[in-house]
Design a binder for these strands. Structure first.
Lengths: 349, 349
DNA sequence: CTGAAAGCGCTTACAG
DNA sequence: CTGAAAGCGCTTACAG
């Protein structure tokens, strides 16, 4: 029952030519005479031949696939990015392999096994929180197997990356709140150690100083990017004697959690406090109230990452030398999406 | 610079044995004497040898990877399922390849190309909306390349599948609302033609009849699974003269959209109307109000799907004959999660 | 323009 | 327990 797939041999026999000719007809048809080409094409058609990519990959020493590494597959933040990557990849004949750093650890594999064992030609990493040991192993990867970071990156390491303009976006957010009349602005941060957390927090602190606004230490509320941290931050806000009138959250999830907890305690957004998020995930527009946020173009980040990786793949293949990192980081713009969770501060505050 | 990976040959030389022995040491160590095993292991260690899976796959005629096909990569509903699949797969040494039906169409590939061209050993399909032509091509796939549907399925086709107990869950939901005192219950349905939409709608109609509750045609509000459809459904509800006191939505997104639109128009949930969803996505607990929903165990669906596919893979490999579909569908339980979007109906309604 | 032949890096009967 | 050898299905210099 297990019908065997026809091979190049079968097609060659059918067409009365050598396997070399069939192979050429398929991969570089201009090297084959028209009549032969026609005969081969018919044989391919008739036999229902499909090239065996595993064999081709072994022969050409390419996997024609890219590994994408996420911190957590269950996090919906990544889905649009994946779509961008995958769409771009498949257009160019590449497949997308996915693994999460959590799982990689659990299964005892090393990250670069995917690269070492020829399953993937390169890798896009969406997790800046890799342990130093793992980062070290990354350095030993031959340059013919490009590695690229997207969204997050490793401070100090020199991998190419695609990023949102986190700092600029943060400044835009603060200026927007200030423009509404807010002077007491708090920031709920991302997780400690996270590069995005630092970029946004630094920019926040810097911009507050630049606008000559007071920034009390307690107005930097530590969080992570989760809903729950947002809830906790809201509790912190509620407990303050002198409450900030606006809160800039480092993620939309934080903002959602913040607003939810507030509403459970009888506070209203934006009447009692303006809240804004970062990311503009799908949900932001449907939340109650619709959330003002800084939109990261996640699809574009994905597309850009795939494009850059493929470029590096092509470069190492042809030049095979120093296709060096002339353009080491692509910065993707972030846009302010104004909705109803922000307004002028309450009077008399 | 492009340092070549060591091969079996290199290890064999280092250890002073044949490649066959190295190979055996790696894949069936019990066939090798302890002293040899030790020598080989040291050579492996020393050379930093990693098996080349592409070569192994070509030789063994297995890809050791599974293709997962989604309707839409950007839909966060699938992320937990993917995590379940991927976790299970990687534990057993398989990789996960991902493609979306949208993209497959766009790139002009045929679905089964992944199977035909030896990139994947089998495939898990999360999209019941494949066109009849595509479904036809699926029938021609040799049984050594198992195909399995998860979440959704194709009515009439005979593929194994993993599903939530949609009908039972719907009955549970209706009985719950009825138990709260609701008699006028509407249902916002999924997209026309979708198998889940039908399962849930049928079960809804059946249960309403069983409970001897009136069901006006207009109380079956057509939707799809999206936020926007939920908003539209809310507009429909608002326009009714005699409004249902409870609305059972076929997805959480529908429920979110429904509630959002209501709140924009000054209605309150659950005071004015009880709303419940289906899926219990992460967000449901953080929505305002927290959403009552039927929880689909998406992680478990993923794990089960991967397990079933791997079983079939093993079965066809060993028996190579009729490892027939004794257990053709796994049904995953759904649980009622009661939160604050549902309550007793408003008095005097 | 075409073919014979080597080889990508493994695995696995077959002998011994 | 171990090795020599064939072969998985391709691609690609090398000749002609």
């Amino acid at each position: 029952m297990t019908q065997k797939m026809p091979t190049l041999q079968d097609v060659a026999q059918l067409a009365g030519v050598s396997t070399a000719t069939v192979s050429r007809t398929l991969s570089s048809p201009d090297q084959v005479s028209e009549s032969t080409r026609k005969r081969v094409s018919q044989a391919v058609e008739k036999s229902g031949y499909r090239i065996n990519r595993v064999a081709r990959n072994l022969r050409t020493q390419k996997a024609h696939s890219v590994l994408v590494l996420l911190p957590d597959l269950a996090n919906p933040f990544f889905s649009s990015i994946l779509e961008g990557i995958s769409g771009n990849l498949s257009q160019r004949g590449y497949s997308m392999l996915i693994a999460s750093t959590k799982q990689v650890h659990a299964s005892g594999d090393r990250l670069i096994d995917y690269l070492d064992d020829a399953r993937a030609d390169g890798m896009i990493i969406l997790d800046g929180g890799l342990s130093p040991e793992v980062v070290d192993t990354l350095d030993n990867v031959p340059r013919s197997k490009p590695i690229l970071f997207a969204c997050e990156w490793i401070e100090g390491a020199n991998f190419p990356s695609v990023r949102s303009e986190n700092r600029k976006a943060t400044r835009t957010a603060i200026r927007y709140l200030h423009g509404l009349g807010h002077e007491k602005i708090a920031h709920v941060t991302g997780p400690t150690g996270n590069v995005l957390m630092h970029a946004r927090k630094d920019a926040f602190v810097g911009e507050m100083a630049k606008l000559e606004l007071e920034l009390r230490p307690e107005w930097l509320i530590p969080g992570d990017f989760s809903l729950n941290a947002g809830c906790r931050a809201a509790a912190t806000w509620i407990d303050m004697k002198d409450r900030p009138t606006a809160v800039f959250c480092a993620s939309d999830l934080l903002a959602f959690g913040f607003i939810s907890e507030l509403s459970r305690n009888g506070f209203k957004v934006p009447q009692d406090v303006s809240v804004m998020g970062f990311d503009d995930i799908d949900f932001a527009s449907q939340f109650i109230p619709p959330l003002t946020s800084m939109r990261q173009d996640r699809h574009r980040i994905g597309v850009t990452a795939a494009t850059m990786l493929l470029e590096r793949l092509a470069a190492t293949a042809s030049i095979d030398g120093d296709a060096h990192d002339n353009e080491n980081a692509a910065i993707v713009p972030v846009t302010l999406i104004e909705r109803e969770s922000t307004a002028a501060p309450p009077k008399g505050s």
